[in-house]
Each structure stands twice: as structure tokens, then as C-alpha cells.
Design a binder for these strands. Structure first.
Lengths: 141, 141
DNA sequence: CAGAATCCCCCATGATACTG
DNA sequence: CAGTATCATGGGGGATTCTG
């Protein structure tokens, strides 16, 4: 996925200084969203929110993910400090992933978004339906 | 960008029923994130949070956006019911966009994420630096 | 078991030109 | 002013194969 415009930071200087607030806010929110962007990050993070999980367990509990994307997403999350990776030198190998405290705080911050989505789920669906109907009607006219 | 796996909804049935909670939570959060996904949605939404704004004003206040992407993103946000579009039959044409109350509630829900990003900005940067250094060191060894 | 390497495809975005 | 239409591209993600 591709979420957010990182150039905002530099563009801020040349932007209209009358009201730079929206650009600055946008920039900060995007910092957060960029950590959880990508098709699989959220699903992985949530599965790690209740204790350590092994690689293959994750592969099963995140439906549809490929081994490649699981690896890539785990690496990115580890790089950002959202998960920790522990290797046990056993045969066969055993690798455990667990969310960090920073990730725990992230879940908490996402609660608000979750609540918002639930509150407006129906309204959004209705809005889409009516918009699509209007478009279809306009196409016929 | 590409955020979220919409297939989770259907996959839920065949998923492991011992603990469907993470998958269900992920699904709900993704509903919200999918409304604000894309490179420009947040920047536009934030600029509409303090009253109506015209098309060309938006083009100026969202640095780097192309006319095409501005149009596309506005259409999507309108479809989801996050913004309203008002056309004034004047010469030259005048079109105003404004955020809906649903969008206002969305900003509020994003505050938590913004706070999280600010709190952990430095920690994340340090995590990335140390991760990258370790990778570079491993590459040399 | 837990990956790494390789190839390919699609879609979101960008650039450019035209219009009611 | 506020869009549409068309073409080009890049990188996120999928499928497959190989390995310590």
C-alpha cells in the first residue's frame, strides 16, 4: 500500500504560512498511519497483542497472507520497534514474535477508530449506495 | 496506497474459530482505515475541517497533489459521506467542499493516533537507526 | 520450521492535454 | 474555475522455487 505523502515535511516551508496547521497535523497522523500501512500489518499486530506467536502460527491465523509478505511485514514492524523477534537455537528452529509496549499503546489509540467505524458503518454503506445510484441514473440520462 | 485486506470478512468463516477476535478487530479497524487510505485523503480532510473550501484552494493548500488525484480523492470521500460538494451555478463556476459531521468525529478519533505518533516519534527513529546499523554490520561480517 | 530469491502483474499515482 | 481523458510508470503484493 501507499499511504501518505512524506514530502509534506519539506513542502511545509514553501507552503502557505497563513495556516500551516492542517499540513502539520496531516504529517503527524501520517507518521502513525505509515507504521500500520500495508495490507497485513494490522492483522499481524493484533495477533501479537496477546502474547508471543510463532511464525507458522501467524501464517495460519492471518488468513490469506503469503509467506513472503508475512516475512516482509514482520521485518518492517521489527524495524519500527513495534514487535520483537526471538530466535531459539533448537532443531527444528523456533522463532517467536511479540508486540512491544509501543504496540500496546497503538492498539489503545486505534480503539477510537474502531468505535468510529462501528458507529458509522451503516451510514457509510447507505451513502455509497445512494451515490452509486445517482451516478448510474446520471449515466442513463 | 493499498491498505487492508477486505477478504477478511469472507475468510472469517473458514478461519480458526478458537480465537476470531483479532481477525474481527482487524476487520473493523480496516473499515476506518480504508476510508482514509490513499496518499491524499488525510491532507484533504484536514483542510476541510474548518469550513468550506473551493477546489482551487484545495489544490494550493495540499502541496504536491495533482488535479487528477484531487478530483479522484474528493469523489471517493464524497461517496463515503465524509464530505459534501456544493455547486454554485455562477460564471465562472464555483464548487465548495466541506467535511460532514462524520468527518468531524473521524478527526476526533484520529487525535489518539496523532498523540501516539508524537509520543513515540523519537523511539521509532532510534529503533530504525539501530536496526539498520545491525543489518549493515551483518552484511559486512 | 522459518525463511530468502526470483519473476510477474496490477493498480494507484503522475504527467500531460483538452473542455463546459 | 473545475473539472475529464488518455497514456505511462513504479512498487506493493502474489506465486513459485530453493535452503540452513
Amino acid at each position: 500500500m501507499f499511504l501518505g505523502n512524506n514530502d509534506v515535511i519539506e513542502d511545509l516551508e514553501e507552503a502557505d504560512l497563513d495556516d500551516p496547521a492542517p499540513a502539520r497535523e496531516a504529517c503527524t497522523v501520517l507518521e502513525a498511519l505509515n507504521r500500520i500501512s500495508g495490507k497485513w500489518a494490522i492483522g499481524i499486530l493484533l495477533n501479537l497483542s496477546h502474547g508471543p506467536v510463532r511464525f507458522t502460527e501467524l501464517e495460519r491465523s492471518v488468513p490469506g497472507i503469503s509467506r513472503r509478505m508475512l516475512t516482509l511485514t514482520l521485518r518492517n514492524l521489527e524495524r519500527d520497534g513495534l514487535i520483537e523477534r526471538t530466535v531459539y537455537a533448537t532443531v527444528p528452529p523456533k522463532v517467536e514474535y511479540r508486540g512491544t509496549e509501543m504496540a500496546d499503546e497503538l492498539y489503545a489509540s486505534l480503539k477510537g477508530l474502531t468505535a468510529w467505524a462501528e458507529r458509522h458503518r451503516d451510514a457509510i454503506a447507505r451513502s455509497r449506495d445512494s451515490y452509486d445510484r445517482e451516478q448510474a441514473a446520471a449515466g442513463l440520462g
